[in-house]
Design a protein around this nucleic acid. Structure first.
Length: 507
RNA sequence: GGUGGGUUCGUAUAACGGCUAGUACUCAAGAUUUUCAUUCUUGCAAUAGGAGUUCGAUUCUCCUACCCACUACCA
């Protein structure tokens, strides 16, 4: 059996969208499950849309997610440019492969599957608007190509002359006039399309000396011995063209699988950058600063664990058929199959995304969380011993979704409150409460003893404790008093209580 | 407009012709707790509509509706 080889082939036109990461992930899982290779290729045949930094961003995103290419990256972590044992098909950037495509395009012309076209952009535009005026749609195919300027309608002398003189001609695929293309998709099953609805796509442009996506894609997939093409649903409409291209070349074609789209959380349409801005969640794996200086947030910078991000992405459009939701990468590889990928678009749910991170945070050891929390503490000017931080982390991790929540949850363990929540103060800072709290605090030497003391006096536990909590934390929310006092110490607790007495007005 | 794809609780999904349509997130209520959070329990909530095939349809077929994608010398 042929070795499984899949590729992720993004365009460096901007930051990689989370939908793109999911496509890469499914490719990776599929390959790993079958002991195959996952290849990274950059499709940059449109120089006009090239965005500086986008390629590096794509590579860094995959690295962060742990979706590591078996092929395509050199030892320096950049896209491989020279062929070696690991990267036999280098270079993996199509702009650097430009020399190889023209002969394949010419081959199709020679075999009668393609032709030279000399129509200018203006001429095509005119034809389009003319058709539109007549209430029709202009399609460059068998129905119209006979009346247009191409090598099928012109003498060979004329063609040869124009090929020499002009530098804006193209090579177009000669779409069969009326044929039903029968296709199989691993996810969608049987699909049929009549070629009369399709157009003669441009395969190669003289102006850039470059192929378009369709040609470059098929040629490279063939040369790189790709066995399965797993890509987004937006490519489904060009599947017939690709089938026909493989046939014209006489090449064995790979299997195809078209993934459902990622949709916006509310309303209709596919997930876009705007939705993230509007609803307050990232749509990109990493923070991105565009060349114009516009900043987009990323899952990494928002505090998501890479494992959690991968996990939540995996569950968007795929499920294992069991009730398990938390998967490590290895478990995903083990469980993954294309048969279990759904057909319909998946609306992204930011709430569920947070839930995943919460679960992963709980699975982290106190040691790991301590390591992550230490620099945050330092940024607040706190220098606490690791042992103590580890204990604190153990206490608060159940209350957090992100490590970045830790400070907001437990800051009062490190410094005294500067102000008090007014609503809580008016509720609990009452004379009788304060009197009881002062006595409890002064007449005992530990939190436990204090609790017993309050109980022994039959005082209202809630009122007294919240009064103390207000003094210690500035509000009536937070950790248990015993825990707080254990970390800040009795002396500090007394100090904070005195300060509260000075600052707060009895209600 | 044309072509293709899609449609199970609000969301993600399960049920490869056969239990009372299951689970998770969200939300609500209750229990626990010195507060908050956690935890636990309970609850709300779906097969787009209509025909057909069948003993039996969420599942198969057809029609309608709605949604999405594509419709460039972009990918």
């Amino acid at each position: 059996m042929k070795k499984t080889r899949v590729r992720f082939a993004p365009s460096p036109t901007g930051p990689l969208h989370m939908g793109g990461v999911r496509t890469a992930l499914y490719n990776y899982l599929f390959a790993k499950k079958r002991g195959g290779d996952f290849i990274l290729r950059i499709e940059d045949t449109d120089s006009h849309r090239f965005v500086p930094g986008a390629e590096e961003y794509i590579i860094e995103s995959l690295r962060w997610c742990g979706i590591l290419p078996d092929e395509g990256l050199g030892p320096d972590g950049r896209l491989a440019e020279k062929a070696d044992e690991r990267n036999p098909h280098a270079p993996y950037r199509q702009s650097q492969r430009r020399g190889i495509y023209r002969k394949y395009a010419e081959q199709l012309v020679g075999d009668g599957f393609a032709y030279y076209a000399f129509d200018t952009a203006a001429e095509l535009e005119a034809a389009r608007s003319q058709a539109e005026a007549a209430g029709q749609t202009f399609i460059y195919n068998a129905a119209t190509r006979g009346a247009l300027r191409n090598s099928l309608t012109m003498s060979s002398e004329e063609v040869t002359r124009l090929l020499e003189e002009r530098n804006d001609w193209t090579i177009r695929f000669r779409m069969p006039s009326d044929e039903v293309v029968v296709m199989e998709d691993l996810i969608r099953g049987h699909i049929e399309v009549n070629t009369s609805t399709l157009d003669d796509k441009v395969l190669w442009k003289k102006a850039d000396e470059l192929p378009t996506y369709h040609l470059a894609n098929i040629v490279d997939d063939h040369l790189m011995e790709i066995s399965h093409v797993i890509r987004g649903e937006e490519w489904l409409p060009s599947l017939p063209l690709h089938f026909l291209l493989y046939r014209a070349f006489g090449w064995e074609r790979p299997e195809f699988a078209h993934l459902p789209l990622l949709l916006k959380p509310v309303g209709n349409g596919k997930l876009s950058k705007r939705d993230g801005d509007k609803m307050g969640f990232p749509v990109f794996p990493l923070k991105w600063t565009s060349p114009e200086g516009e900043v987009s947030r990323g899952y990494r910078e928002d505090g998501y664990f890479a494992d959690a991000f991968v996990n939540l992405l995996a569950m968007l459009g795929w499920n294992p058929g069991t009730e398990q939701e938390i998967f490590s990468m290895d478990e995903l590889i083990e469980a993954f199959s294309l048969e279990k990928v759904g057909k319909s678009g998946a609306k992204f749910n930011p709430e569920k995304a947070k839930w995943f991170n919460k679960e992963y945070l709980r699975m982290c050891s106190d040691e790991e969380l301590c390591t992550l929390f230490m620099p945050i503490l330092a940024s607040h000017g706190v220098n606490a011993p690791a042992g103590k931080v580890r204990e604190i982390v153990a206490l608060i991790k159940e209350r957090a979704t992100f490590v970045s929540d830790f400070w907001d949850i437990a800051w009062y363990l490190f410094k005294a409150p500067e102000e008090y929540v007014e609503k809580d103060a008016s509720k609990f800072w009452k004379k009788e409460n304060v009197d009881m709290a002062r006595q409890a605090l002064d007449n005992t030497d530990s939190a436990q003893a204090m609790e017993e003391y309050i109980r022994a006096n039959e005082w209202p536990m809630g009122k007294v404790m919240n009064c103390i909590r207000l003094a210690l934390t500035g509000s009536s929310n937070g950790l248990g008093i015993a825990d707080i006092m254990r970390f800040i110490g009795r002396e500090e607790a007394l100090l904070r209580f005195r300060r509260a007495e000075e600052r707060l007005v009895i209600c």
